[in-house]
Design a protein around this nucleic acid. Structure first.
Lengths: 132, 132
DNA sequence: TTCTTTGCAAAAGGTTTGCAGATGA
DNA sequence: TCATCTGCAAACCTTTTGCAAAGAA
């Protein structure tokens, strides 16, 4: 056998991890994924979480988001969006409107050719704003 | 002696590291800082770089920027700005124009009160664009 | 059955800490 | 002088990898 082709099997671990990310209200870190997935799979190992996160990322089904130095993962296919990090409760929310108009190909001052952009807003989420 | 007060000395290591960050064209990672500083201080140790970076951060003289999962540091006091990460050469540049109009206090759709924002653009830097 | 995936434990990679000697004030 | 700072090495923590057993097809 010469080919590098290999099958990708469906397993309980992968299904659970995928569901955990889809059900999340925002991006999750490795520890969050592990905790939530262990509700269904108590024996789940960290290595499997890392391997699955990498697999799903390579397949484009999820993607990493770096926030405050931590790498979080969220399900893909939710369209173009950004994040709002609450400075009070620390939760991360998904925003569905975009505050910048920078289509791919835009030439930014200085001669930088923009292919993509990321925006993160910081402040008080609705709940914290009301509580204060 | 009861107080937690303690002196902070000026040392060659701190001076060099501070200068390296001020002279940089954009935020630098720990390895970058170490490499550049070793031009002047060949025996500089990693631990000193980490300790100094932490010290300068606590003093507000520099601040961390997280980009693609890596923590970079840049001198403070350069005013409001954002970053451009080149997808070809991986270098990070500082942008002096801001693509969003979100003054502190702005209420974003959904009821989010914006206090600050971060924008990172990805694409080809001038040098890489010309080379391609 | 056969080849992939998992869990465990060891290995790696990066950051922090303890300590004795060097150094700034 | 003497408390702070530095370099080294050990300790830590997080992520990756090797391997034998478990599991999907």
């Amino acid at each position: 056998m010469l080919s590098g082709m290999m099958a990708t099997r469906s397993t309980r671990q992968r299904d659970v991890i995928t569901r955990v990310l889809h059900d999340a209200e925002g991006p999750l870190g490795v520890a969050d994924v592990l905790d939530r997935a262990r509700t269904d799979l108590p024996a789940l190992g960290v290595a499997t979480v890392y391997r699955t996160l990498k697999l799903l990322t390579d397949q484009g089904r999820i993607h990493p988001v770096t926030l405050d130095g931590e790498t979080l993962y969220e399900a893909s296919g939710k369209g173009h969006h950004h994040h709002f990090a609450c400075t009070r409760c620390q939760r991360v929310f998904t925003l569905h409107t975009c505050p910048v108009a920078l289509p791919s190909g835009t030439v930014y001052p200085g001669g930088f050719i923009v292919e993509a952009h990321e925006v993160t807003l910081y402040g008080q989420c609705p709940a914290c704003a009301q509580a204060s």
